[in-house]
Nucleic acid binder design. Structure first.
Lengths: 351, 351
DNA sequence: ATGAAAGCGCTAACAT
DNA sequence: ATGTTAGCGCTTTCAT
C-alpha cells in the first residue's frame, strides 16, 4: 500500500537524481545547469532543462542552504506594521527580493525589552538570513550590535554606523523640507511651527534640523515655543497642536515630522473650530496613501517607500552577491519632494 | 590565517557534535533532548541543556527541515498590504506563529494573472510551507487549486470548500450588521442605503446578504437603487456615494461594506456640503485603526483582526501538529460587533 | 535509555 | 566539459 506501489514514478516528487537520470547526465551536471555555475554544453543543458520542465522539478531550498551555506533569505525589521508607512515599504522590499529569488522574513513587533530583541535576532539567525534591513527609524542599537556580532550584513536608514557590514540609506530630507518651508514663506507665512518626532528617533532629529536650517535660510525667527515634540502618532499630533493653540503668539502654519502627526493637527484644528487651510496651514511628511483622502487633502513632503524598499534590498543584495560588479560602497540616496494638495494657503490677513 | 588558527574553538559556530562532546553524550541524545522525542534520563538531559546554554547553540533549521521534512514555516497570502485591514492581520498571524516557533512567509502582491499565481505557489512550495492562510477575501481559486494539488493544508475566510485539507474561518458578519441596522432604525432611519464590495468577493456577498436580511427583519423596504456596488476603495466609496446623491429619493443613512468605502462616503458628503451625521449617517465595517480619526470618527462594525489572525494560524497549526489533541475539524468563528462613534445620528426632521 | 550509522537533497572539490 | 564523491547538520531507524 505504499505510494510507490500505487502511483506512477512520474508522480513522485522529483529530485535532482530523477532529473539526472531522465536527462541521462550526472547530478552534478543538473546542479551546474541550474546554477549556471560552470559551463555546461548546450546539448546537455537543453536535455536537463527539458527534463526539469517535464518533471516540474525545482530544487529543495533547504538542502541547497545546508550545503552551500546560503539561504537566499533576507530579513526586514520594522517596529510597527500598523503605521501605514511600513506596509508599502515591506511590499516594495519584498517585490525586489522575490524578483531576485530571495525570500523575506518580516519582523514587526515592538522592540522594547531584551527578550524581544533576543527573539528577533534569534529568528534571523535560525533561518540564516543573508542580510537584514533594520528600518525602524529608531535606535535599536542592541539589535544592530547583536546582528553585527554574528556577522550579518545590514542596511539602515539615516544612521551612520562605523562598520563595513552596515550600509546606510541616506534620505535627502533637506530638499523636501526646504521646498515646504519655501512654499509656506512664498504664501506669506512668517510664523511657522514644527511638530517634531520623538527625540529618540534619529530620523526625527534629522527632519527637525532640516526644518531649522530651512527656516534660518529664509531669515525666519522660529520661537522655541513653536517647536514641540510629538511622537509620530495621531494622538501625539492632536496634543502637540493643542499645545501650540494655547500660545498667545502662535504660528500660522505647522510643518509636521510625519503625516500621522499632521492628521492629528487636522483633527485638533477641527475641534478648535479653526479651518484648514484658511486659518491654519498644515504640511505633513511621508505622503502615506491616506493623505490624499483627509479633509482637506494634505500637502506633504513625499518620500517614496518604493524607492526606499528597493534601495534597502539592493544594498543587501550587493553584499550577498559578491560577484555583482560594484565592490564599492555606494551611499544609496532616497529623495523627497513637496506634494502640493489643499492644506496650505496664505495666512489669515488680519494678523 | 584561517579563523581556526586565530580564534578559540569556543568561538566557532557550535554544532550538534560540539554540544554532544561537551555534554559527553552522542549526537542522538542531543537531538532527542532538544526535540523531547523520546525519554532521555534527567542526568544526561541536564548535561545537554547545560552544554547548549554554554555554547549558545541552536539547531540549523535547514538541516532539520531537510531530514525531517518539516519546515516549520507557514505562508500567508493577502492581496494588498496597503489596505489597512491586512497589516494588523499579518501582525497577529505572525505573533502566534512565532510564539510556536514557526516562521512566516508573506505574499502580498496583486493576484491577477497566471504568472503571478504561479510565482506565489512556487515560493510557498520551494520553502516547503506546512500550511497557507489565504486571506485575500477574493476568489483566487487557482491558487487554492494549485496548493491543494500539492497537498498543502490551507485556511480560508468565508469560503466553504469541500476539501478536508481546507479549513474555513467563519466570520459572523450577521451579528454586527444586524446591530448596525437596528441602531440606525432605532435612530429613526427607514431609508438605508448600502455600498457593497465587488461582487467577485465572497465576503462582500456575505456582507450584502446580511444587510438585506437585517433590513428585511426590521420590516424595511430597501429600493434597488439604494444598493450600489463599490470596490472597497476610498475612490469607490466616493463614486458610490455620488451615485446615491443623484437619486431623488435618497437614503438618510448608508452602511458600507468596508471602512475604506465609508471614508469615501465621508469625503463625497463633504464635497456635497452634506454634514455627517446631521444630514447623513454613515456606518463602516472592519474598524480599521483609522476610523477613530476621521472627521467625524466613524461608527463601524468591528471585526477583530487579532482574532482572525490567531484563528488562521491556529487552524494551520492544528493540521501541522497531528499530536495536538483535537483531530476534529472545528469551525473557527470570528465575531463582529457594532462600534459606536460619531457618524450616526437621527435623520433630518424635515424629510 | 543510549549510541552507531544511514541518509535527507543538494553543492563543490576533485578527478578525468 | 562531465562524472564521482564527500560531506553540509541534523533526525531516525536499528542495535544494544
Amino acid at each position: 500500500m505504499s505510494p510507490r506501489s500505487v502511483r506512477t514514478v512520474a508522480r513522485e516528487k522529483p529530485d535532482i537524481r530523477t532529473v539526472a537520470s531522465l536527462a541521462r547526465v550526472s547530478i552534478a551536471t543538473v546542479s551546474r545547469t541550474i546554477n549556471g555555475s560552470s559551463a555546461v554544453s548546450d546539448k546537455l543543458s537543453k536535455r536537463v532543462w527539458q527534463a526539469i520542465e517535464q518533471l516540474n522539478y525545482f530544487p529543495n531550498t533547504h538542502a541547497r542552504s545546508l550545503v552551500s551555506g546560503r539561504s537566499r533569505i533576507v530579513g526586514i525589521i520594522v517596529e510597527d506594521i500598523t503605521n501605514p508607512f511600513f506596509p508599502e515599504l515591506i511590499a516594495s522590499f519584498e517585490e525586489f527580493a522575490v524578483a531576485q529569488g530571495y525570500e523575506v522574513l518580516v519582523s514587526t513587533g515592538k522592540i522594547e525589552n531584551a527578550a524581544q530583541i533576543e527573539r528577533i535576532v534569534r529568528r534571523m539567525l535560525e533561518r540564516k538570513v543573508e542580510g537584514v534591513a533594520v528600518l525602524t527609524f529608531g535606535s535599536e542599537e542592541s539589535v544592530l550590535d547583536q546582528l553585527a556580532m554574528h556577522g550579518i550584513p545590514m542596511v539602515l536608514a539615516e544612521f551612520q554606523v562605523d562598520n563595513p557590514q552596515v550600509r546606510t540609506l541616506a534620505i535627502d530630507y533637506a530638499t523636501g523640507i526646504r521646498e515646504a518651508v519655501e512654499h509656506l514663506v512664498a504664501l506669506g507665512h512668517r510664523k511657522i511651527g514644527y511638530l517634531a518626532g520623538p527625540h529618540t528617533l534619529h530620523s526625527a532629529g534629522t527632519r527637525l534640523h532640516c526644518f531649522q536650517d530651512s527656516t534660518a535660510a529664509c531669515g525666519l525667527k522660529i520661537g522655541p515655543d513653536w517647536i514641540v515634540e510629538a511622537d509620530h502618532t495621531l494622538n501625539g499630533g492632536v496634543r502637540g497642536m493643542q499645545q501650540l493653540l494655547r500660545l498667545k503668539n502662535r504660528p500660522t502654519a505647522v510643518v509636521c515630522s510625519n503625516d500621522m502627526t499632521a492628521i492629528g493637527v487636522l483633527h485638533a484644528a477641527h475641534q478648535a473650530k479653526l479651518s484648514v487651510p484658511e486659518e491654519l496651514s498644515v504640511v505633513g511628511l511621508d505622503d502615506i496613501a491616506f493623505t490624499q483622502y483627509t479633509l482637506p487633502p494634505l500637502t506633504t513632503i513625499g518620500l517614496s517607500r518604493h524607492a526606499l524598499g528597493r534601495a534597502a534590498f539592493e544594498a543587501l543584495y550587493q553584499q550577498a552577491e559578491p560577484n555583482e560588479s560594484s565592490a564599492s560602497k555606494p551611499n544609496y540616496i532616497v529623495s523627497t519632494k513637496l506634494v502640493l494638495r489643499e492644506s496650505t494657503a496664505p495666512p489669515p490677513a488680519g494678523r
